[in-house]
Amino acid sequence: MGFKLLSKLLVYLTASIMAIASPLAFSVDSSGEYPTVSEIPVGEVRLYQIADGVWSHIATQSFDGAVYPSNGLIVRDGDELLLIDTAWGAKNTAALLAEIEKQIGLPVTRAVSTHFHDDRVGGVDVLRAAGVATYASPSTRRLAEVEGNEIPTHSLEGLSSSGDAVRFGPVELFYPGAAHSTDNLIVYVPSASVLYGGCAIYELSRTSAGNVADADLAEWPTSIERIQQHYPEAQFVIPGHGLPGGLDLLKHTTNVVKAHTNRSVVE
């Protein structure tokens, strides 16, 4: 069995187990497998329904001669939608809004960016022009300005110390501490036991640490421990890039980060 097929099978099995364990909360999309990078042309966006009122959005972007996937989250909030992270750029984010209108038909009224990198804030200006209120932590807003990236308009308070959590509509926002970046936030959907790890969490097929220019490698494993301790009931975990899975993604990420750190020390 090929690795790609095995990865998709694991996603399907995880979703099936969740649907059985929580039949009222989960209505997993039966329309197909989780979209992969090879299936999404740059400039297009796919939506994948995880649970009743919960979707991931998947886009792709060219970077350094390669094409990478990027995940975000959409959560229903009454007759409105909360968006977590842009679709990595203005063109993708405009396509995301169009796809949401086509498939869901509810307005996106608020959006949260989970850290300051372009795959999370690139497209904020498109959201703002569409009347979406954009939010991020003060740290993310400051770092985005320093980096020359787009800056969300509103500040999220109460997320300055490791372990801080605040309720934001249908989700809980959690600051686990520094990891992929010093400002990275985690998003949890309690009604569906869905954990969105953003770039602080890796997919299972990833074996290298990737972009760690703004990471705190020493603190990252401790931050992941905080996530595990705060959300032990999480059933569906979405990484910032690639295929979702279960809580095993947290341990896998820790292993990859520690291996990278150990290699760096040896070198």
Rank of each mutant, 00 (worst) to 15 (best):
L195S: 00
F168S: 02
P221V: 14
G158M: 12
T182K: 06
N211D: 06
R167A: 06
A218E: 11
T254N: 15
L247W: 06
R128F: 14
Y175M: 11
A130G: 11
H115R: 01
L97S: 03
K4S: 05
V126Y: 12
G242V: 03
D118L: 06
S7A: 08
A66T: 08
V124K: 02
P239C: 01
A178E: 10
V37K: 12
H241S: 01
R263V: 10
K258P: 04
S160V: 14
V11K: 05
L83K: 02
V108A: 12
L9F: 11
A213E: 13
L217G: 06
V67A: 08
G198H: 00
T153F: 06
Y68E: 08
S160C: 11
Y231R: 02
D119H: 01
S193N: 08
S38C: 14
L217W: 15
T93W: 00
V54C: 05
T140M: 02
A19M: 15
L5F: 05
G131V: 04
A90L: 10
I58H: 15
F174W: 04
P244I: 05
P35Q: 14
A111R: 03
V124C: 08
A215N: 05
A179W: 03
R141N: 15
A129V: 09
A209M: 11
G72H: 00
N149C: 15
L82G: 02
S160M: 15
V194M: 06
V124N: 11
S30Q: 06
D64S: 09
H252C: 01
V189N: 00
H117G: 00
G158F: 15
K251S: 06
G177Y: 00
N149V: 13
A133Y: 15
E147V: 12
I40W: 12
S70W: 01
D164H: 11
A218Q: 07
A200L: 06
I224G: 02
E80W: 10
V212S: 12
R142A: 14
P221I: 15
S70G: 04
E39Q: 11
E157P: 13
K102N: 15
A25N: 12
I50G: 02
S16H: 05
D119C: 01
P35L: 08
K4E: 15
P69N: 11
S113W: 04
D119Y: 01
T222V: 12
P35R: 12
A179Q: 00
F174Y: 15
V28S: 08
S162F: 15
D119W: 01
S162Q: 15
T86D: 00
D77P: 01
I227Y: 00
R167H: 05
T222F: 12
D85L: 00
P244L: 05
A178C: 04
E150P: 15
D248Y: 12
G131F: 15
P239Y: 00
R128T: 07
A144E: 03
A129D: 07
P23D: 14
K258I: 09
H260D: 07
A259C: 10
G2E: 07
S264H: 12
Q49N: 08
S31R: 13
K102H: 06
V265P: 13
V11T: 08
L81F: 01
P107E: 14
A178Q: 14
V126S: 12
N184P: 02
L247P: 06
T261Q: 07
M18K: 04
R206N: 15
H57C: 01
E267L: 13
G89M: 00
V54D: 02
E147H: 09
G123S: 02
A165S: 11
G240V: 03
I74Y: 03
G169E: 04
E233P: 04
R76L: 11
E157W: 14
I50V: 10
G89W: 02
E80M: 05
T109K: 14
Y135I: 03
H117F: 00
D183A: 00
G210P: 04
G78P: 04
H57Y: 04
T253M: 03
P107A: 13
D118Q: 12
G53R: 11
E219Y: 15
E145N: 10
R128K: 10
I20M: 11
G53W: 11
S264T: 12
S181G: 01
A95R: 12
V108C: 03
E33M: 14
T140G: 03
G210L: 05
T182I: 06
G122P: 04
F174Q: 03
E101T: 08
L217I: 13
G123F: 01
G177P: 01
D216R: 13
A165P: 08
T93M: 04
T254M: 08
Y175E: 00
F26R: 09
S191Y: 06
Y196H: 14
L185T: 04
G148A: 14
L83A: 13
L5K: 05
L73G: 09
H252A: 07
N149Q: 14
H230N: 06
L173W: 00
G122H: 08
I58L: 11
P239D: 00
S113F: 10
A215L: 04
G131H: 05
E145Q: 09
V171A: 10
S62I: 07
A21G: 10
F63Y: 09
D183W: 01
E101R: 11
T182S: 07
F174K: 00
S155I: 06
V121R: 03
P190K: 05
S191I: 07
C199S: 01
G245R: 03
E225T: 06
P221Y: 08
V171W: 02
A234M: 14
A259F: 13
E145G: 11
S113R: 04
H252W: 07
V171C: 03
E44N: 15
E44R: 11
T261A: 12
L10P: 05
S31Y: 05
V54L: 06
P138H: 08
R206W: 07
N184I: 02
A215Y: 04
I238M: 13
A66L: 10
P69K: 07
S161I: 11
G163A: 09
F63M: 05
G197N: 04
V166F: 10
G246I: 03
R263P: 07
A218I: 05
A136F: 03
A21P: 11
G123H: 03
S137Q: 09
G240W: 03
T60A: 10
G65L: 13
G210S: 05
A66Y: 14
L24Q: 09
D77F: 10
V146L: 11
A25Y: 09
E147L: 07
V256L: 15
T86S: 14
H260K: 13
V121Q: 00
Q103I: 13
R120T: 04
R263M: 06
D183F: 00
S31D: 07
I227L: 07
G245V: 02
V132D: 02
G78F: 06
E225R: 11
H252L: 03
Q103K: 12
N149G: 13
F116V: 03
V187Q: 00
V75D: 02
S193Q: 05
I100K: 00
A95E: 12
F3W: 05
H154M: 14
E150M: 11
D216G: 10
S191A: 06
E101Q: 13
D119L: 00
S38M: 15
G72L: 01
S223E: 02
A179C: 02
D79E: 14
A19P: 08
A213N: 12
L185F: 04
Y48N: 08
H260A: 08
A218M: 05
Y188E: 00
D164I: 10
S22L: 13
H260Y: 07
E267W: 12
A136R: 03
V166K: 09
H117W: 00
G197I: 00
S56E: 10
A259Q: 10
L82I: 11
A179V: 04
V266K: 13
G123C: 03
E101G: 13
F116R: 06
R263F: 13
D164R: 10
Y202M: 07
